[in-house]
Write a protein that binds this DNA or RNA. Structure first.
Lengths: 150, 150
DNA sequence: GTATGTGCAAAACCTTTGCCTTCCC
DNA sequence: GGGAAGGCAAAGGTTTTGCACATAC
């Protein structure tokens, strides 16, 4: 869950980045970003589109796509690696991993506990320079496990 | 990379799984599987299709798609998580991870060295039952790094 | 013989692009 | 005013599907 303060701070970050890169601060951009930040469900483009549409009825789908791509390029949001046709987005910049349910495709955030560390495999560096690392855990979520049993 | 013995053994595995699940052993299925096993480049469906076409000219694209999906369901091959539109396949069942070049999209296998261990984050189990875990490392490969410098 | 798999073609799906208009700076 | 961003519509690319025929069991 995100407090209003957190969301506002992220929007200020966006504005700062826009100013420093020469990108323009538009209503669409802010609201699209805000909806991704607010959401805790790693929404796909369609879900973001629907949420933004409630606030800007004239928004178009391709603006959402273009904006999500821009925000990703600026490093303000990320794409969750899934093996699904739809891209899922995540605005949480704190390091964490993902548990993806193979049944319902829900994505859960997995934060490392204090003292836990994910070390880079020694063999990695020989291939090139590492930009980022992401652990993806696939399984069946509790809800789907329950449904299956019944 | 793979000896004929290794490949033959994997094909025997496929046949066994087919028999035990009632799936039919067809030439197409065997050759598609063999091409994925033989390849070390994590091919996409198109690449597999082209390779199979050389041996079965009448093969159709959708048979390749359908077969790759079946093989995945049987646990004989895997999909590499990438953030690209094209799915990439991997028949190597030994635990390993992937280094993906963000420039050229090449996928490199990262095997853990002796003694290295990737531990499951403690927080994971609360979400459900883990099926598999995959570490994905993104970066710029040596080749692309060189090209950029020049 | 029967049910599964294949081939063909067309569709579905997510995403991107071209072009003109709008609006931020 | 100039140029980037948005809206519309249409295309692009990957993957899936329906149906008739072929084939494994």
């Amino acid at each position: 869950m995100h407090t209003k303060e957190t969301i506002d701070r992220r929007i200020e970050d966006l504005k700062k980045v826009c100013h420093s890169t020469g990108m323009r601060v538009t209503e669409q951009r802010i609201i699209i970003f805000e909806e991704v930040v607010k959401s805790c469900e790693h929404p796909d483009a369609e879900t973001v589109f629907q949420a933004v549409k409630k606030r800007i009825p004239s928004i178009s789908f391709d603006t959402v796509y273009r904006t999500l791509a821009s925000l990703e390029e600026l490093g303000l949001i990320f794409r969750v690696d899934n093996q699904l046709p739809k891209a899922r987005f995540d605005a949480d910049k704190t390091p964490h991993h993902h548990f993806i349910c193979v049944k319902c495709n829900e994505v859960f955030d997995v934060f490392l506990e204090e003292g836990e560390m994910l070390s880079i495999p020694k063999n990695t560096s020989k291939f090139g320079d590492i930009k980022d690392m992401n652990l993806q855990i696939r399984g069946v979520c509790n809800k789907c496990k329950k449904n299956k049993e019944s």
